[in-house]
Design a protein around this nucleic acid. Sequence first.
DNA 1: GACTTTCGCACAGAGATTTTGTTCAATAGA
DNA 2: TCTATTGAACAAAATCTCTGTGCGAAAGTC
Lengths: 243, 243
Amino acid sequence: MITDAVRGAEQLSVAELAAATGASEMTIRRDLEVLAEQGVLERFRGGARSLLLRGEGPPFALRKQDGIDAKQRIAAAARLIAEGESVVIDSGTTCLEVANALRNHRITVMPLSLHAANALAGGPRLTLLMPGGEVRTGELTMTGPLAQASLAALRFDTAILGCCGLSAADGLTAYDLPDAAVKRAAIASARRTIVVTDGSKFTRTALAAVAPASALDAVVTDGTAPAAQLEALTAAGTTVWQV
Amino acid sequence: MITDAVRGAEQLSVAELAAATGASEMTIRRDLEVLAEQGVLERFRGGARSLLLRGEGPPFALRKQDGIDAKQRIAAAARLIAEGESVVIDSGTTCLEVANALRNHRITVMPLSLHAANALAGGPRLTLLMPGGEVRTGELTMTGPLAQASLAALRFDTAILGCCGLSAADGLTAYDLPDAAVKRAAIASARRTIVVTDGSKFTRTALAAVAPASALDAVVTDGTAPAAQLEALTAAGTTVWQV
DNA sequence: GACTTTCGCACAGAGATTTTGTTCAATAGA
DNA sequence: TCTATTGAACAAAATCTCTGTGCGAAAGTC
């Protein structure tokens, strides 16, 4: 909430935030302190300014709660995974919910982020594999040549990918080049590729191209996805599940 | 405490435990439920039986709190690590405390367990690398050929290892063969090897031999370590730090 | 099939932990 | 120098967690 206020105004004083939220200035300062630590905003004497416009997106901790119910519905994609399959699960908050949903399945699974690894760890019947790689702060994604090499050395039944942008024309896109490379490696090492994403991603195209729509076997999304895009994907040969 | 009671008697009823602890049966049931989930014991209708005698050691969650202060003192081994070094950190509860102590250092670090990875994740100045590998339940150690290959492909300044047994005669030993193989790979890929361990390990020798004492550059341990063993290690050329 | 025991959910109270607000001395900037 | 802001310390409030009791359902037992 403070995040939204600062993001909206670009820059706000502590006094203004206190008045807006009804909380005391001390509370505002404490909240600003943790948000500054998370990298959401930047403190200056008397107030704070948002860092979200300049940097890429908001940090993981915030995005995780954003539209959590839609993500959990989309995580029904876990039903597409059969017993005994081997699966790669991408990084990102939507894929994290898929990981949660897969925790009690009897499968072999390789997550591409530490967040997903933690969600899966201790799953009673699953074999948990980790790729090597450099762990990026915040997202905790596995990246770099070690990660790509880990994927290249293995063959999976299914890759479950998240995305930053998806359309029939531009295919699957991501904000981050190292991430995009890992996603490509995941697709290359899997027999089948499933994309999980909420509807908002269909109106965006991010910097790094990962794969054309024709490389995607199935897309699982929610009711907010634009029908035209879904039809175009279907026409391109991708199965669309709307939950 | 419940753990000790069940372990002592091998098998106890809910009513007996309630009488012994002074708590209600409902509380006992709830506690037993979490212990059963941790794999400490096995529920049956009316009571629970311990699994600790049959299996190997107690589970990670319990060992972590065991002698926590000694471990945190031993974690002063972090002072032996210089700025900018590259470090491998082994699995185990003692090494987890070392990882905690290293969180704010400016180093490159590769943990050999997910527990340590989580302790390090988000460290503001460190480069976090992960080895690939199979993640074993409970300990969350990285094992298998992927892990060994990850280590073999890299060269570190220092390896910080835990152990199940340590003596001048038998060297460093571990309970678990896959773990031992990974430890060996860590030693092979590091210029310097530091062992961190509490004093109790000096009276034990575990199944799998990892390395002779001569391969260990330094040992950091607490005051409970037997002096004779420490002298023997010193004679073998190992530097001993007692904290 | 009837009876007894155990189980686990639901609710409520106690205790602990976290969050919040106030005061005040120190500090940064004009 | 002066003023506004800050962060520490402490007390109050709110929240969460843990625990216990009652009760219907399920699992064993005879």
